[in-house]
């Protein structure tokens, strides 16, 4: 790699930093308010149109929604200013470890991801219909 290329690369790296900083300072993400029941059901209708949820639950901060559809757990969790969805076997959801602040759901596979579910310590896990 030539010196000119390395200089160009260094200048570009600085410009990347500037643009990211400006994007952060501008504060123009999509509005992504916490999920409520109706909002979560609409997410489910878009992302899992062939599934019919039997019941839905929301984390206490509204950042994660969990639905049960038969033996499947359908999950939406907040990432940045949007939501990412995953499905798990209900047994896998039930086996997720409790952490200090709730429950941590780790999603395997190449697309990965982790959802930190804010879940009261005295509430049953996995969620049950009240």
């Amino acid at each position: 790699m030539s010196t000119a290329f390395l200089v160009q690369l260094a200048v570009s790296a600085v410009l990347v930093g500037v643009m990211v900083a400006v994007a952060a300072l501008a504060r123009i993400p999509r509005p992504a308010p916490p999920l409520d029941d109706a909002g979560f059901r609409q997410v489910l209708a878009v992302e899992f149109p062939e599934r019919r949820p039997d019941a839905v639950w929301l984390s206490s901060d509204g950042a994660v929604g969990i639905a049960r559809a038969g033996d499947a757990a359908l999950i939406a969790y907040r990432l940045g200013d949007g939501y990412v969805t995953r499905d798990l076997n209900w047994g896998q959801l039930a086996a997720a470890p409790r952490t200090g602040e709730g429950v941590r759901l780790r999603f395997g596979g190449p697309a990965g991801g982790t959802a930190q579910v804010a879940w009261p310590g005295d509430a049953p896990w996995p969620p049950v219909r009240s």
């Binding site: 990347v16 643009m19 990211v20 400006v22 994007a23 952060a24 501008a26 504060r27 123009i28 993400p29 999509r30 940045g80 200013d81 949007g82």
Partner: peptide
């Protein structure tokens, strides 16, 4: 970004997403 900030265009930026794209 300026147009989005000024509300002149429906532009949305999220800093970590922007960082990923530019890197």
């Amino acid at each position: 970004i300026a147009l989005g900030r000024l509300g002149r265009a429906p532009v949305r930026y999220e800093a970590r997403d922007t960082a990923n794209s530019l890197i």
